[in-house]
Nucleic acid binder design. Structure first.
Lengths: 230, 230, 230, 230
DNA sequence: AATGAATGAGCGTTCATTCAT
DNA sequence: TATGAATGAACGCTCATTCAT
């Protein structure tokens, strides 16, 4: 309906043909990297899958590494935007942190490919700095809210940076286990308890009325497991 | 016949020349995989480093993958032995779980290469099942103690498997961040707070008299950063 | 008919826009071929340097080879014009030959890039015939004067074609050595002795009053080392 | 007969299989480089022609450049050995220089491929230093004898290094013209006059009794145009 | 006339694996 | 057992050339 064209126009006034091509390539690349892992992904396959040519790939991206990097950056931006959006509706700092984590779980849960990219494939010498930055952004996002929580007396003082990392690590591991376990129950089934454990770990009271992601997921286009899509 | 018992002996008493050769190769392989990552490690280099030949490598291990797998298994066994040893001295289940985690941190902290291998490089399609099993062993180790803690009323009932994963994830992330951050403060500086957060997360009282790693590090042969050694 | 004279005009009066474009491209091409050598010169770079596009290049020249060929021809014409001009002022045949060689040394000496192009890069199967023709023109130029010298009894009869080649070869080698020797003394420092050796080789008396290049260099626009310019 | 095994043993006691392989490759490489020029020669073709595999090529030579370089070095050594041998029989310095040049003409004349390699293909940025060194060796060889000639008063003093270059350049050009001219008369037909011109150029008397190459070519295995052979 | 995105054959190089010795 | 020369498929990347606009 109306909202559809509205959404399209949000991004830019009709993406140029060049931009669309680039998008095509990124999409194909996500698929191939996801399926094969960085090392085993062949530019040839990405070329075929994106219905272009090897030369075309190199016209738009200067190298395999650059292509993967672009994918990573784009995914990071998107993820952070999602988190910011999820957090925007909350004022209580702990509930903001909650919301960020829950949304992250949610996004990864509906995008296995993205999750693989981020949490597994990117762990290579050459992408370490980029990945480090991304993880830092996430941990900061959490730590900032926790700091605020400390300031308001909601939780006792602690090393909030470390706590942010712990939270990220916990989410990460839960997602990775779920990623590599075929037939595992949906990620959602762990939301509540994960959240509770993390909150309690910081000495906050367990808040069972916490933000419900499935409620505010309005624009989040989460349809099952749409691989290769963000 | 004769040869069979001979083969059996290789495992325990007087390592045969063949077993020693295998050991030599595994040691060299650990070094190379550690330095270069799985993908960039060359069999050539392992051959040179183990003072054998490429043919020799393939006599003892059927493929690069098999070699890496063997390394992973061996390292996992050693790691778990360390954890069991650390845990053996404790009777209180929570302190046992504590001790396991602290020892894990400790081992990784003194063996960056090993940590990379386990926590990063092994994340490839082909090693997923093996890695999964290893992580499960670790999470189980924790979960078993937590179950006992619940049984004894030390902590309220909870999904202890999930908790195990959370603990592992937290440790994992803290170690990885430390791995990729040059000049980071020693891992030890985070022991206390990490432990506290995790314990509190399960509703246990903060136990400041918890097992001290530096005390039970007796057999831990932690000399600087002896890469390529367990 | 009409169009013919029009075409002719492009060569002399008011260069059409198209001809100017072609000139632009040839100039850029000279620079790039000179800098990189034929094999490593990229059409892309020539396109950028000539402020055109790849398509534009191919509109004016059917292929890379054709472009290089055109360059070679143009350069040859220019070089020969220079030689003819240098020779024009002399009536004594031996001094004419002298002048041609000296001027050649001079032109190459002030245009290293041109020298590379002619004396080195053009030695490829595909340009062999063109290059052969150019060398032949030069050798002929010399041989013609030598023939005249023989006719006048200035030198004893000899194989003047061979002598022309020898003279060219000597010049060539002296220039090439100078090209590839960084910090070599200026080419000029070898003029006198080279000339003497060549003349004597044909049994001519050494003529120390021979044409002085610096004197007749009037129109030779030798400003430092203006690569990419003739 | 007898002499055959004797010849084989001259070089070394039965060339090892590895050395033979290397020889095989060098021979094939000479053929391909000669036929296609350095830039257009494909390692694939060399592999096929040497009845090995691409991997085999790279086992013996670390790169295409290295392979070409080895060829160049080997050829240079052989050429210089030939020249030294030709020179050995002469005591008169001018006749020594004569002999060197005549032999060079002779060797090139019977090995077009070698000539191409040396005088044409090697003129690339990357081989410039190597080539320079080789040319310098040749020019030195000549210059040394000329110096001696000056010392003995056979020729008046002159810049013998320059003279060496001139001689080399003359030979070079005569050979190159012959190389690229199909159906040209044999190089030999120019020996006498070339020699005379060069000698006279230095003020030496024309010595028509000079060393005759065809006479001392005894062990030189010059059979028509045996390309790909040294 | 001119543009520049797109093509695709081809390149040099690598490396896990094999096998005659 | 052990060696190391040999293999060959596969890879990332380049670049002259084409063509819709």
């Amino acid at each position: 309906m109306m909202s559809e064209s509205a959404v399209v126009e949000t991004d830019a006034v009709e993406p140029s043909k060049g931009a669309r091509r680039k998008e095509q390539i990124l999409e194909a690349a996500l698929g191939v990297f996801t399926r094969r892992g960085y090392g085993d992904a062949a530019m040839d396959e990405i070329a075929v899958e994106s219905a272009t040519s090897k030369g075309g790939l190199y016209f738009h991206f200067s190298s395999k590494q650059a292509l993967f990097g672009a994918l990573l950056d784009r995914a990071a931006d998107l993820l952070m935007n999602r988190l910011e959006a999820a957090v925007a509706g909350e004022t209580d700092p702990l509930r903001r942190a909650d919301a960020a984590i829950t949304r992250a779980l949610h996004v990864f849960g509906s995008h296995r490919g993205l999750a693989r990219l981020f949490l597994i494939d990117a762990h290579t010498r050459e992408f370490a700095p980029r990945l480090l930055a991304i993880r830092a952004r996430f941990a900061d996002r959490i730590a900032r809210d926790l700091d605020e929580g400390v300031r308001l007396g909601l939780i006792p003082p602690c090393d909030t940076r470390l706590a942010g990392r712990i939270w990220f690590g916990a989410v990460n591991e839960v997602v990775v286990q779920w990623l590599v376990t075929p037939g595992a129950p949906p990620l959602e089934s762990h939301y509540a308890e994960l959240r509770a454990i993390l909150r309690r770990g910081l000495g906050a009271s367990d808040d069972s009325t916490a933000a419900d992601v499935s409620a505010d997921a309005a624009g989040a286009a989460v349809v099952g497991d749409r691989e290769g899509q963000l």
